[in-house]
Amino acid sequence: MQVSIALNGATSEHEVEPRLLLVHYLRDVAGLTGTNVGCDTSSCGACTVLLDGMSVKSCTVLAVQADGRAVTTIEGLATNGELHPMQAAFREHHGLQCGFCTPGMVLAAVSLAAEGGAGDEAAVREGLEGNLCRCTGYQNIVAAVLDGANGNGVRS
């Protein structure tokens, strides 16, 4: 089936098998390998992208479900070489070690902030319950998200 996805602001059109997962579309068809596969069972959040602005786990979405919709991956957050405030906050606070969870973590955080769910530490910790990090102990991630969410994560 032919899909047309508004991928990071540009139209991405391809013929795909209905069973192709969105994460494989992004990595193997569109060549955007920033979206990682961790668990492949919708538990870890490494594959998180934005579908029409909302965080989803792309290992549990079919590419055909994203047809006609907007998908944002980590590659699509920066504009004109300038990091998105959430990305900048992760760098500033060193909210990563190996970086494997980071693309998913940043996109989950952008969605959380846009929904007004990143107001305090408890809300951020709960709002990131779908994203696992094996390295950092979360402390710096939470600090980054609280900072990056100032102004609701919207680029100032």
Partner: peptide, 9 residues
């Protein structure tokens, strides 16, 4: 239920 990503879909 689940987490925010699960609740979105």
């Amino acid at each position: 239920i689940g987490d925010p990503q699960v609740r979105h879909l």
